[in-house]
Write a protein that binds this DNA or RNA. Structure first.
Lengths: 221, 221
DNA sequence: GTCTATACCTGGATAGAC
DNA sequence: GTCTATCCAGGTATAGAC
């Protein structure tokens, strides 16, 4: 909403952006309460006093971190969907892989702050961010509906989402996958699990779909 | 391990127990860092100074809370398994329902502290508690293996557990179920989802098993 | 065992010089 | 915009009386 103080001139990240970045990293690693304003300011070579020029309170900074996390995450997910081959199974896999990318990749600190510190937010801040996070969840929801419509998913959709998302968000506690390839592999395993299939069976189904499938995206050319 | 100061005489909970109880509630609601020793002490009509007679540090109290949470949770789960009718699907449902009971019932504050504050523990404390929490996870693991052996579960077992447990633990964020009946209903929905079945189909399968099933528990009488 | 008093520290936030 | 200096609230933990 607000234009950054130094009228977003060239390329160098504004102080606000640097602060948001450093805060995401430190809060993700130490937790909000254990991360002092002094810590964060120091990380970008500022003194604590100067931080309050850019953010009125520490809580405001937290909100900014989470907002950026959701927005960047959404962009990442949408981009993955745009690049995904047609066919519901392929798109499902792409979305799951993308979410794993968010949770394990460069956005991982933002995402962890989002999920772990969400209820440290002031109630009004939660209200402001809610529509954004709904959008995120809705992406997954839509795909689960498609899976059901095409007869792949037989269970209750809400319940499936309630198992899938926390499970995905929790993956960093038992594995750490920085590269896209291993993220895609994990995504296959998880997609297969949601459909109660062996991984190979899911793989085959998915690839079959790309070449001969219902082709929601196939052009007629 | 240690006998409580007042040689565990009659029935009244010792001070230590009261403190652990109050701490679990407050920490669950406010988070560890935002809950002061003064808060906790006051909740059981003590002054902060007196608390340090029972626990050397605040960290020790946190460890005690989590330890009790795991131990009581284990007891609850084992009891549920003992009472469950024979048949793997029934036992699976009983275990899932029991875990929901832990997460949503009287032990919910303990469980939340366990999952949310685990990484605030000192590394040595984590090491001490690890064997206990492994035991808990192993209960679910064993049942997923049985499900696979009997041809109900086709996906990778580890992955299934990695989806199931966080999903279960996260239920309080979207629903609050205090009574056993609605907990059992939710458990059915979740079991069905793990097997990618409509709820009714799972229900039928499960009840069929009780009357005619493979009967691991049926006696020959 | 529990209280009171207090030492000691670190946190968020502000004021005013530059 | 950033720094320095500072205020003040609140935290953990200890000492010693009762």
């Amino acid at each position: 909403m607000n234009v950054t103080p130094q009228r977003l001139a060239g390329k160098e990240a504004s102080r606000v952006d640097e602060l948001i970045d450093a805060a995401s990293r430190l809060i993700s690693l130490q937790g909000y309460d254990r991360t002092s304003v002094r810590d964060i300011a120091q990380a970008v070579n500022l003194t604590s006093g100067s931080m309050f020029y850019h953010f009125k309170t520490k809580d405001d900074l937290l909100e900014a971190v989470i907002r950026k996390g959701i927005i960047d995450g959404l962009a990442f997910m949408n981009q993955a969907l745009d690049l995904a081959p047609g066919g519901t199974l392929n798109r499902f896999h792409a979305l799951v892989a993308a979410h794993i990318g968010v949770v394990q990749g460069e956005l991982r600190h933002f995402h962890r702050v989002w999920t772990r510190e969400w209820d440290r937010l002031q109630p009004e801040a939660r209200l402001r961010l809610r529509p954004l996070s709904e959008q995120y969840r809705e992406l997954m929801n839509a795909l689960l509906h498609s899976l059901a419509a095409e007869g792949h998913l037989h269970s209750d959709i809400e319940t499936a989402r309630h198992l899938l998302l926390p499970g995905l968000n929790w993956t960093p506690t038992w594995t750490s996958l920085k590269d896209k390839a291993s993220q895609a592999t994990l995504a296959e395993k998880i997609c297969a699990t949601v459909l109660n299939l062996p991984v190979d069976a899911f793989s085959d189904l998915m690839h079959a779909e790309t070449t001969t499938g219902p082709g929601h995206r196939r052009t007629i050319d």
